[in-house]
Simulated assay, not measured.
Amino acid sequence: MNVLPKRSNTQRFHIKGVLYFFLIIFLLIFSSIITGTQLDQFFNHDSLGQFAVLWQKMFHPYWPYWSYVVGPLLDTIRMALVGTLLGTIIAIPFALLSARNIVSLGWLRGVIRVISNLVRTLPDLLLAAVFTAILGFGPLAGVVTLLIFTFGQMAKLMFEAIETIDQGPLEALEAAGASKVQIIIFAVVPQVLNTFFSNFLYTFEVNVRASTVIGYVGAGGIGQLLQVTINQFRYDETAVIIFVILIVVVLIEFMNNYLREKLA
């Protein structure tokens, strides 16, 4: 005879779930008090009315405006592609120098990892604002921003992948007297190549989204056009831009998923 396991009172009355719910509510209220945020302002009549007006305008897109969106959209994709490619190329030697099974000098690995970690902690919006001030408004500031962002991310992803590879081929080549370069080419690269391309595609997908945001601070691309339409209260044109961005991001995600499955 099958007997169902007896549940405790905690499981029966979902006490943990209730406690987590009240904990989240408490933290929300506590953080609003600390930061001086008035939560009721989000739900007053003026805010809801303004939201309804904005939503109504965006539900009537000005479709002829799409012809003005194509150029900045292509700039956004080019920014993401060039920034991802250059950042990945720069990240490769840093990833190799950060891997414990490639470099035996602990101090050298530590210095390289600290550099990568410092770069990765810088927000992309901050980088975009800085390089916009240095290089001026336009795609060049966006490319440099995405290059640095990609470098920090790819350096971490790749050195972690390198450290998890099978050590057998490395030890065999080392015992045969192969140089470090030969070990990397014939033992490391074949094992991490698929992971490398998968990480590259993922980073490119992230950079397409990021390039839209950093364009909002003047780094070129469709984000800059988005800022103009919002500042001019042309929400019907803003709706067209958001729709185009959504379609492009979805297409890129489907393409990346298809390529990752082929690489698996």
Rank of each mutant, 00 (worst) to 15 (best):
V181C: 10
Q167I: 12
I33H: 14
S211W: 03
M255W: 06
V144Y: 03
S211M: 07
P64Y: 03
F243W: 11
I162F: 02
D46R: 15
E163W: 13
Q56P: 09
G87N: 05
G223M: 06
Q50A: 07
A99W: 05
I29E: 00
G223N: 11
R234C: 04
I183F: 07
D124Q: 03
W107E: 03
Y258E: 09
N256Y: 00
F197L: 12
Y202H: 11
N117G: 15
G71E: 12
V248C: 10
L225F: 09
F43Y: 01
W66H: 13
V70Y: 10
V119D: 13
E160H: 11
A141C: 08
T88N: 05
I222C: 03
A133Y: 08
T150K: 01
K16C: 06
S47C: 09
I242A: 00
N207K: 14
A161R: 08
S31A: 08
V249S: 07
S8I: 09
L157Y: 02
E171M: 05
R113I: 15
D40W: 13
T76K: 08
L81V: 09
V181Q: 12
Q38A: 06
Y202D: 11
Q56N: 13
D166T: 06
A175W: 05
H60V: 09
R109L: 08
I102C: 11
T203P: 06
V189C: 03
F42L: 14
V82Q: 11
I25G: 01
I245L: 15
R100Q: 15
V181L: 14
G221N: 01
V111I: 15
M158S: 05
L125D: 08
G215T: 02
Y65P: 12
F94W: 01
V250I: 15
R260H: 05
W63C: 04
L259M: 03
M255Q: 07
F149L: 06
A264M: 12
Y216D: 05
A161F: 07
F22N: 04
Q232G: 07
L146P: 15
D40F: 13
P169E: 01
G136M: 02
